[in-house]
Simulated scan of single mutants.
Amino acid sequence: MLRLTRAPNIAIAALWVDALRHAGIAASVQRYFLGSLAGELPPDQCQPEVWLTHHEEEPRARELLDNLQNVPQRRWLCACGETVEGGFEQCWQCGAMM
């Protein structure tokens, strides 16, 4: 087994592992319940970790996580002239749909 990364919280760790598994990469979350010990143990030792079952899947797994963490932002120009950024599909200025 190989530790791929630490996650900021258990929800993010679960999402990353789910995405890896969906891509056919065997992964699991370790340190699932240590968050409650933060304060008694150093906080960086209590973060959930994403582990791979097979070492040879590391390059593909790192690429997938990088793509998940660095999603390009959309930007489109509405007919009213307003530039709309992010995940919005409706213009905040006039209400028109993308």
Rank of each mutant, 00 (worst) to 15 (best):
P59C: 12
C78N: 04
E57P: 06
Q30Y: 08
Q47D: 09
I25C: 08
Q90P: 05
A96G: 10
E82N: 12
V84S: 02
F88L: 09
A27C: 09
R62W: 07
A14R: 11
L68R: 10
L15I: 05
N9W: 06
P48S: 04
V84T: 08
D44K: 05
L20Q: 03
R3M: 13
A13K: 02
C80V: 09
A26H: 03
A38D: 03
W16Q: 06
Y32N: 09
I25S: 07
V50P: 03
N70C: 03
L20N: 03
L2H: 09
L65M: 13
S36I: 12
P72I: 04
R62N: 09
Q69M: 11
P8Q: 01
A96H: 09
A7Y: 00
T53Y: 14
W76N: 04
G35R: 10
L20R: 03
R3E: 13
V71K: 01
F33E: 14
A96R: 15
A14K: 14
A61Y: 01
N9L: 06
E57N: 15
L15V: 06
R6N: 12
L15F: 05
L64H: 05
E40S: 14
V50I: 13
F33D: 12
C80R: 03
L15M: 07
M1V: 15
F33H: 14
H54M: 12
L41S: 02
L68I: 03
L77I: 08
H55W: 13
A38V: 01
L2A: 11
L68V: 02
